[in-house]
Amino acid sequence: MHESPQNDVEQTTDADLALRPLAAAGDPVRLADAYAYPPGGPWLRANMIASVDGAAARDDRAGGLGNETDRRLLSLLRGLADVVIVGAGTVRAEGYGPVRPGPGGWEKLRADRPPVPPLAIVSRRLDLDLDAPVFTDADPAARTILLTTRTAPPGRVRAAAERAEVIVAGEDRLDFAAAVAELVARGHERLLCEGGPRVLAQVVATGVLDEMCLTVSPMLLSGGAFRILNGPAVPVPPRLRLAAAYQDDEDFLFLRYVRRG
């Protein structure tokens, strides 16, 4: 779609999305293939966006940094995933509803899987509107999941269990390693984390992140916005390897890093 700005993006599916490799002038890369999950076991990737100066939000929303290409890539990554992990704060700030298929549907991406992946919402206290569409409008084959802790109020746990599948992992803070293991045990081996920054910081600190997909938005914002990770410094920072870099015609960069080793 980057070859002709006049192309109607709604006529193509997420499986057809393509971008130009950053360091080459060759043919566009079909991202459904470039971002395919590796075979042979569970894999947790994160997808985030930041401005050139590192801000992870504009006007308190990550969506304020993106463009149509970034939104289409987000849709593609969701279509490839078995489950989408997101923090309760991000659900509220970004106005999340259930995952919906991208333009043209996801039949090419999902094969014999449910038509959409479920959301797995991280909420320590379960202080969410359980009558919100993110629960009530979820596809029955992709019921919303709540990832919570043993210190969650028992009454909220019981109420949440009527609207969602509840997974308890950890005492006062979510044990992400245990939560991921529970999701994998339910068949969700291709995991996508959409943050926000506090959740992603915990994922990284736990050591369960395999891949970081980062969109660099060509903006300079300044101000006090969070970075894509918002938490204590990681004692031993994980080293990443740049696996791919792409760009579009609006100078957005799409970087894919994987964990070394």
Rank of each mutant, 00 (worst) to 15 (best):
A93W: 02
R143D: 12
R259A: 09
A181P: 02
R227C: 11
A93T: 14
D175M: 04
P39K: 05
L192G: 05
R72A: 08
A55C: 12
L146D: 07
D129L: 03
G195R: 04
T148N: 01
I49Y: 01
V166S: 07
E250H: 11
V83N: 01
A205Q: 12
H2T: 15
G87D: 03
L147Y: 15
G89N: 10
P133C: 09
G41Y: 02
I145R: 06
P103I: 11
R259W: 01
L22N: 00
Y35K: 01
Q247M: 15
E10F: 14
G41E: 03
R143G: 05
F226P: 15
A15C: 02
A185C: 04
A55I: 06
G97W: 13
L147D: 07
G41D: 03
A177T: 11
V204C: 07
D16V: 03
V86E: 00
R124E: 10
Y35D: 10
G26T: 05
R198D: 15
S123K: 06
A225H: 08
L192I: 03
E194A: 14
P38S: 00
H188T: 02
P153S: 03
G224H: 13
D33W: 07
G261V: 11
R45P: 01
A15G: 02
D248F: 02
D60K: 13
L240N: 03
G89L: 09
V116H: 00
C193R: 13
A111R: 12
R158T: 14
E94K: 12
V116I: 06
G261F: 12
R92A: 13
V234R: 06
L240M: 11
E194W: 05
V180I: 15
D33K: 06
P154D: 13
A88P: 12
E94A: 15
P117M: 00
A34N: 04
